[in-house]
Each structure stands twice: as C-alpha cells, then as structure tokens.
C-alpha cells in the first residue's frame, strides 16, 4: 500500500456488480451516484458484500457504522476515498 490507489465511482460499480449482481431495469453505468442502494434494488446484505470486496481489494476497513451511513454509491465512494487516504497515510 505504498502507492495511494484512487477509487472511482466505476470501481464502486464494478464491486457492486461482482458482489451482488446486475439488476433488472437498472443502468449501473448511468448517473447513479446519488441514487440510494435501495432504489437500485440492493439490500443491506448486498451493500455489506460489496463493502467487504472493496475492503479486501484496497486493504482498508470501513467499519459497521460507515456501512450504515452509506446510502448511495456516491456516499460509499467518499467513505472509501477517506479510508484509502488513511491507509496511505499509515503506510507513508
């Protein structure tokens, strides 16, 4: 983790897709940053599974409270960026 990895919305969407599957009638490549997971058809376990895969890929930990806080992919992205910065800071 010596090099800071920059997480983008595309990474969040990729993780969502891999962990919980593509939805019917939902365009994950569209403007979904501020659409709630619930409206996208993902339940809390789907979010938990997605966060788990991000944590494993990027080596950070968001914690349970953060998972509950993130209601949209955009909010999850912000938390992930903060956590990545934290990991990079520790490694520096």
């Amino acid at each position: 983790m010596s090099v800071q990895q920059i997480i983008t919305l595309q990474d969040i969407v990729r993780a969502l897709r891999a962990a919980a599957g593509e939805g019917d009638g939902v365009d994950l490549d569209g403007d979904i940053a501020d659409v709630t997971f619930s409206e996208l058809g993902y339940d809390s376990i789907a979010v938990l599974e997605t966060v788990g895969s991000l944590e494993r890929a990027y080596g950070f930990s968001l914690g349970d409270e953060a998972i509950q806080e993130a209601q949209t992919p955009g909010q999850l992205l912000r938390l992930a960026i903060e956590a990545t910065a934290g990991v990079a800071g520790l490694a520096a």
């Binding site: 891999a18 919980a20 599957g21 593509e22 939805g23 019917d24 058809g41 376990i45 599974e49």
Partner: peptide, 8 residues
C-alpha cells in the same frame, strides 16, 4: 434466473 440472484 436474474443476475442479481446468482451471487446469493
């Protein structure tokens, strides 16, 4: 089955 059901 829909894609959404496969991981679970």
């Amino acid at each position: 089955l829909p894609d959404r059901l496969l991981p679970q």
